[in-house]
């Protein structure tokens, strides 16, 4: 692959001496949606969280190997974690809006980055909310409590909030699992729109969803990378027997 956005090189991850990932080597392309699939506990989330170094918050985390983003090793000592997490945004499974107003939630990252000019913050909020396809729903109630929104709106607001930090890469850890079909459809639409500007890494348990939204698919099993390839190929003609079994629902 030419000029991959993220290069994972021989990465192993341990939690309290239990191996979660086993020598993963993987290149993820720029401005594409890559989906991580695999049964529960196979290391999808662990892999995702190594990309913005959120695993370090967990006690007993050890890693071996390298992760490059734009050719820079993000586990290098000179890496500024704040900058890294601004470049690599994350959306979690459960929406985790702060108990603040809608506006303050979206403006959280710009304010952290030291933008004082309220006009500019207003602009950013409008831009990212439009990008996250939620602006029309919330523009009249920006100063109301964010937790009064519906679950689907909350999750899209989380995406808007992550976009406000101006990331290049978006990590999404099952963002649509807890949502109803309509909200899920909205999020999927949103992802398809966002992929022209962002590199998206997406975890899901839903095979149909993976097939619908992704360009590349990664199948992980027991901490090992089983297969990586174009989604169209993986879902029609997988190389590996295990992949075929998992995708067709015969195990996992």
């Amino acid at each position: 692959m030419k000029n991959p956005k993220i290069q994972i090189n021989n990465l192993s991850v341990f939690f309290n001496y239990v191996q979660a990932l086993n020598r993963i080597t993987l290149d993820l392309p720029e401005n594409r949606v890559t989906v991580l699939i695999g049964p529960s506990g196979c290391g999808k989330t662990s892999l995702l969280r190594t990309l913005n170094r959120m695993n370090e918050l967990i006690q007993g985390f050890l890693y071996k190997g390298e992760v490059f983003i734009d050719g820079i090793n993000i586990y290098d000592k000179s890496i500024d974690l704040v900058k890294l997490r601004n470049t690599v945004g994350m959306v979690f499974q459960k929406s985790n809006l702060f108990p603040k107003t809608i506006f303050d939630n979206v403006a959280f990252a710009p304010r952290l980055q030291g933008i004082k000019d309220e006009k500019k913050i207003n602009e950013i909020v409008e831009t990212v909310c439009t990008k996250a396809a939620i602006w029309n729903e919330i523009k009249d109630k920006l100063q109301t409590e964010a937790l009064n929104l519906s679950a689907g709106q909350q999750q899209r607001l989380c995406i808007a909030r992550a976009l406000a930090a101006e990331p290049k890469i978006l990590l999404m850890d099952e963002p649509a699992t807890a949502l109803d079909p309509i909200s899920t459809a909205k999020i999927e639409e949103l992802i398809l729109e966002l992929k022209s500007n962002y590199t998206i890494v997406f975890v899901t348990h839903n095979m149909q969803q993976a097939a619908r939204i992704s360009d590349y698919t990664t199948f992980l099993y027991m901490g090992q990378l089983i297969e990586f390839g174009k989604t169209t190929k993986m879902f029609t003609n997988p190389v590996n027997k295990q992949t075929e079994d998992y995708i067709t629902g015969r195990f996992g």
């Binding site: 918050l57 704040v82 997490r85 702060f98 108990p99 603040k100 959280f108 952290l112 992550a162």
Partner: peptide, 24 residues
């Protein structure tokens, strides 16, 4: 979740404590 959200948005540990944890 809220600590993770703040850190994921590029907050330092003290920013996370002062802007998210303490107000709550």
């Amino acid at each position: 979740d809220h600590r993770n959200a703040a850190l994921g948005l590029g907050a330092t540990k003290w920013e996370m404590i002062s802007k998210v944890v303490l107000p709550q």
